[in-house]
Design a protein around this nucleic acid. Structure first.
Lengths: 234, 234
DNA sequence: CAACCAGTTTTTGTATGCAAATATGCTGAT
DNA sequence: ATCAGCATATTTGCATACAAAAACTGGTTG
């Protein structure tokens, strides 16, 4: 699906009228994370506002909100652009995410209830099912849910919030990845081990597994980014 | 100085005319961090805008920006309030900060240049001087600068950004603290050790020291918060 | 006396208007 | 042909206007 086609979709009808500008933030974030608005795209306020079915004011507020999250960059007197997706930045994000996931794994092993672990196991099997059928998008969905749920098991809402923010950056690259079957299988095996370590509540092992898992993700993302960069030279 | 007195200070004259609404974000953040706008204070747009010498539009954009940072909370159709300062939240923040500082310490031991370490040593002696004179505010200033500089030595801009955001929450409580001489001396001794570990580039030891230092800070902050909570019952 | 309801006021949320800054495009000169 | 310089058009940034929602008020009733 082309960028234009996605942008042409008018989403006004879906807006829940009792909700607030959160809708605009959410829509705009999705456009950025899913790549409909490519990195370094200029955000024309008039055009975007029309597209999202509002006026410039709430749109501008949404842009400021996302600027604080780091998904858009503000250029004084020159508007805003979608944040660049530089390999260097991505490495930084992964280093921080590594520390956060390790922390979460450790805490989760101590604080997760049996019900939590059951829930993660359920998500895990959903993920396996989509992996078996080769449904990448659905696989990613459950994959994300597992990681988020693991974070939530740590019982630290602040940790979850920071994680989500940083993860949005990574997800942007994810949407461009074409996972080879080999790598995919490997990621799934890693998830098997992660689940196992959680069930045994082996915090030390879980930390290491999460670090490795993340390191592999980084390799994948870097390949995508460098391929993109060499492919679409500026 | 009373809250009213701080708020009555009109800062319009200080505004750099070529800069944008960033000024408002910065001013509003300072008002919150330094406690002029107490936790859970309702932000009246008309009043605040007048106080800051702008109209509601840039103010609202600033509020959205700070909402993303977590310093203010948005209440749909009911405006915004300064984020609450709950002990539970503070514990969460410290746990995450602990992981981030530990990471930074480890990276800094590897990546810091000798010039970086010289700079931190200089900041350290400034801090000692203000400690000796009992100048708490100045002491805090250099203390903050040391921690920020340590973060920067890690060579990870994303890490610094996340750290700054979370640290703003902690600083809010800091401004209310009345450090006893005993605790203060202890904190300074810890900083001596931290500097020593950095000079020797002993990453493992530095991580531990930073964790302990942070744990002690948490104890202090918690005392302040519980005292506040019992003092000013709702 | 408490609770509820209607009318009023205040406040928020969104749209629009306007001025300043920037981007664009044209003309002419080298 | 390229580039500088100027005029025009667009776009941003801020202020204001207006509508909808919430808070407040006072008065009535159970």
């Amino acid at each position: 699906m082309s960028t234009a086609a996605i942008l042409d979709t008018n989403v006004t009808s879906l807006v829940d009228r009792r909700l607030l500008h959160e809708t605009v933030v959410s829509q705009l974030r999705d456009l950025i994370v899913q790549g409909a608005l490519a990195p370094e795209t200029k955000l024309n306020e008039r055009v975007l506002a029309e597209k999202l079915g509002t006026s410039r004011t709430p749109l501008r507020e949404a842009i400021k909100f996302l600027a604080s999250e780091g998904l858009v960059e503000l250029l004084p007197n020159r508007g805003a652009v979608v944040a660049a997706l530089k390999p260097e930045k991505m490495k930084e994000v992964f280093v921080v995410l590594g520390a956060l996931e390790a922390l979460a794994g450790d805490l989760a092993c101590r604080n997760a209830t049996d019900a939590d672990i059951t829930e993660i196991r359920a998500l895990h099997y959903h993920m396996l099912a989509h992996h078996a059928r080769g449904e990448l998008a659905q696989y990613f969905r459950y994959n994300q849910q597992i990681h988020i749920k693991l974070m939530e098991c740590a019982g630290n809402a602040t940790l979850v919030q920071v994680y989500r923010g940083l993860n949005a950056h990574v997800r942007r690259a994810r949407y461009m990845a074409n996972l080879s079957r080999e790598r995919w299988d490997k990621a799934v095996r890693e998830h098997e081990e992660i689940l196992d370590a959680l069930v045994r509540r082996d915090g030390v092992r879980l930390q290491g597994l999460l670090r490795d898992h993340l390191a592999n993700k980084l390799v994948l993302v870097m390949e995508v980014l460098t391929a993109m960069q060499s492919g679409a030279a500026r």
